[in-house]
Design a protein around this nucleic acid. Structure first.
Lengths: 329, 329
DNA sequence: TTGAAAGCGCTAACAT
DNA sequence: ATGTTAGCGCTTTCAA
C-alpha cells in the first residue's frame, strides 16, 4: 500500500514519470551533457511535481566524493571545541556546505597529530578538512590522500594552503595606536606559545618596541579571559607603571579589563587595553574594545569553498587585519 | 600500479586480507550477528592493519539512513545564521555527529516555513533536523516524513519534541533578584514578539509586576545589542525614574549597559541591568553581567542526540535556568 | 557460523 | 539525443 508519499522520489521515479531513461533524467538534473528541450522540460516538470531531491549519499558513493567537511581543531584538549572562534568557523563552513549537501563535523586534534589525521585520510566520507590552530607536527602529518582537499586557517605548508589573517599588521596597527595615544610603557599578554601564528604578533610587538627604544614587557597568555585577567595582574605587579596592555586576543583583553578594574585601575584612563579578533562582543562591551579585525567568517568561508571546490589556489591567502578604534584605548 | 595507499581500504579489502567473505567482515565490524572468535580476530586485525574506515555514504545508502543533520534556523532573514547562539548549537551538534560520521548543515528557514522544510523531508541525505527559534506556522509545516527525526530548540508540537529552557523560571529568578535588591521601577526590553518562547519571559515579567503591584514598563527589542541600546534610551525617556532594566537576552543587556553609560547613568548604581543567556562574554564583561543560564550546549547536545538516535523521548525536555548573580544587578 | 547474491540511488562510459 | 550497462561500498536476507 505504497501511498505516493510513503517514500521520497528517486531518480527512477522521475525518469518513469517523464517517460525517459534514468540516464537522461540524470543528465538533465545534473546539468551535464545533452538533452532535447522537450526531454528537459518533462524531466524538470516531473522532478518538481514529485518533490525530487537528489540523494547525496548515492551521488557521493558513485563519484567517490565524500559527504562531510571536517573542521579539525588542534589543541591541548577537546575544550578547544567550545571556543566561540571555532564555532564561528563551523557555522560559516556549515553554511557553505549546505547548498551542496555537505555537512560539517567538528573534531579535536591533539598537538602531535597523527592518529586521528590518518583516519581522516582513510575515511571516504570525508570530502575535505579544515585545520584550525595547526602546528608544524600536525601539518607534517597530513596524509597524502588529503592533498588538494585540505586547508588551514592559520599557518600552512607546501601541501596545505593557508587562509590566514595578517596578524603582524593587525598587531602593529593596535600597537601604533597605543603609541600614538601617548602610551610608552606597553605590555603584551601573548597567545599560547606553541601556536606559530600567534607568535607573529609577539614578533611584531618586539620589533615595534625595539624600534621605539621601549623595553619589552611580555607575559604568557593562552587566549582565555581567565588567563588574561591573571596576566594583567602579573603585569601590574612586575611593572607597576605600565600604561597600556596589548592582549593577543579579545577574550584576553576582556579578562584583563575586568581584572584591572577590580584592582581600581581605570580603563582606558590609567591603562589602555587593546585586543585582537574583533569578537561580536567587542563592540558591545563597556568600554567598547579597541582591537583589530579577524574576519573569521570570511576566512572560514574562503577555506571551506577552496576545499569543496578542490581547486588548487595560491599557497597563502592573506586577509587584512585593520584597526578598529573604540574606547578602551 | 596501485600502491597500497593509492585508495583507501574497503570492506572487500579487509575481507580478502582476513580470508573471509564480505558478509562476515561486515558482521564483525558492524557488531551484528554471529562470528567465530577466530574470524572476529582476523577481521579486526586486518581492518586495523589496513586503516579501514567504513564508508558512511555507502552505509547510509543501503540503510536509507542519511548523512547529515540540518540545523534550521527560523527568522526574518538569513542574518540569523550569524548569531553566536546559533553557532553554539551548530558546534555542539557537529560534535555529537562526528563519531557517527554525521555532518551538520546550517540553513535559514523563513518565518512561514513550507518550501524549504518540504525539501528537507524529501532529501534522503538528511538524517534529522533541529529547528531553532521556531514558530507555529513552521511547526505546522513539518512534513510527516520528518516525524521521529526532528526536534525543536524552543517550542515544540505533538509531532516535534521540544528541548527548551525554562524561560519563565529564569526570567523570574532575575526579576526577583532585582526586586530583592530594592528595585521597584523595573522595565523590560523584550525579544522579538513573534517568537513564542521569548514571550514566556514577558509573561513572567507581567505576572511578577502585577503580583508586586508594580506598573509595567515594556519596550520591544529583538535580542540584538543595537536594539537593546536604543530600547534602554527609550525606557529612560519614557520613565526617567527607572531603576532597573531586565533584558530578554544578554546581547540586549550589553547594548543597554553601553547606552546607559554613555548617557552618564551608572550600572548598577543608578540602574541595575539583568540579562538572559549567560553568554561566554557575560562573565568577562565589566561590570560582569547578572543573568540567567541558558545551557545552549547541553540543550543542543540533547536535541542532536535524540534526533540521531531516533528514539521517541518525552514531548518536552526542560532545562533549568538559574540565576547567575554577578555585578550588573 | 559463514558465503553468495541482491540491491540501496546514482553517475558515467559506451553503444545506439 | 537517448538508452543500456556496469558498478561505487555496504548491509542483509537466504542458503548452505
Amino acid at each position: 500500500m505504497a501511498s505516493p508519499t510513503a517514500r521520497s522520489a528517486t531518480l527512477d521515479d522521475v525518469a518513469r514519470a517523464a517517460g525517459v531513461s534514468r540516464a537522461t533524467a540524470s543528465r538533465v538534473l545534473g546539468g551535464y551533457g545533452f538533452a532535447s528541450p522537450d526531454a528537459r522540460d518533462r524531466v524538470t516538470a516531473a522532478a518538481g511535481r514529485l518533490g525530487y531531491v537528489p540523494n547525496g549519499a548515492a551521488r557521493a558513493l558513485v563519484r567517490g566524493g565524500g559527504v562531510r567537511l571536517v573542521v579539525a581543531v588542534v589543541g591541548r584538549d577537546d575544550t578547544v571545541l567550545d571556543d566561540p572562534y571555532v564555532q564561528r568557523v563551523v557555522g560559516a563552513a556549515a553554511r557553505v556546505g549546505d547548498p551542496q549537501g555537505v555537512g560539517v563535523a567538528l573534531q579535536w586534534l591533539p598537538l602531535t597529530g597523527p592518529p586521528a589525521l590518518g583516519r581522516l585520510g582513510d575515511d571516504r566520507g570525508v570530502c575535505g578538512v579544515i585545520l584550525v590552530n595547526t602546528t608544524q607536527p600536525v601539518l607534517d602529518a597530513v596524509p597524502a590522500r588529503l592533498h588538494g582537499r585540505v586547508a588551514s586557517i592559520g599557518t600552512g605548508s607546501p601541501a596545505v594552503p593557508s587562509f590566514d589573517v595578517d596578524n603582524a599588521a593587525g598587531a602593529g596597527a593596535v600597537l601604533r595606536h597605543l603609541y600614538a595615544g601617548g602610551r610608552r610603557r606597553i605590555a603584551m599578554v601573548t597567545g599560547p606559545r606553541w601556536l606559530s601564528c600567534a607568535e607573529r604578533s609577539v614578533s611584531a610587538y618586539r620589533e615595534l618596541m625595539a624600534a621605539a627604544g621601549l623595553p619589552e614587557r611580555l607575559v604568557d597568555g593562552d587566549f582565555t579571559a581567565e588567563r588574561g585577567g591573571r596576566a594583567a595582574l602579573e603585569v601590574l605587579d612586575r611593572w607597576p607603571d605600565t600604561d597600556a596592555v596589548y592582549a593577543a586576543s579579545d577574550a584576553t583583553a576582556f579578562g584583563a579589563i575586568a581584572a584591572l578594574r577590580r584592582r581600581g585601575v581605570e580603563v582606558p584612563h590609567d591603562v589602555a587595553v587593546g585586543g585582537f579578533d574583533d569578537l561580536p562582543y567587542a563592540a558591545m562591551s563597556s568600554p567598547a574594545l579597541t582591537t583589530a579585525t579577524h574576519p573569521v567568517a570570511r576566512i572560514a568561508t574562503a577555506a571551506a569553498t577552496a576545499v569543496l571546490e578542490e581547486r588548487s589556489g595560491p599557497p597563502v591567502t592573506a586577509f587584512p587585519s585593520t584597526l578598529v578604534a573604540r574606547d578602551s584605548a
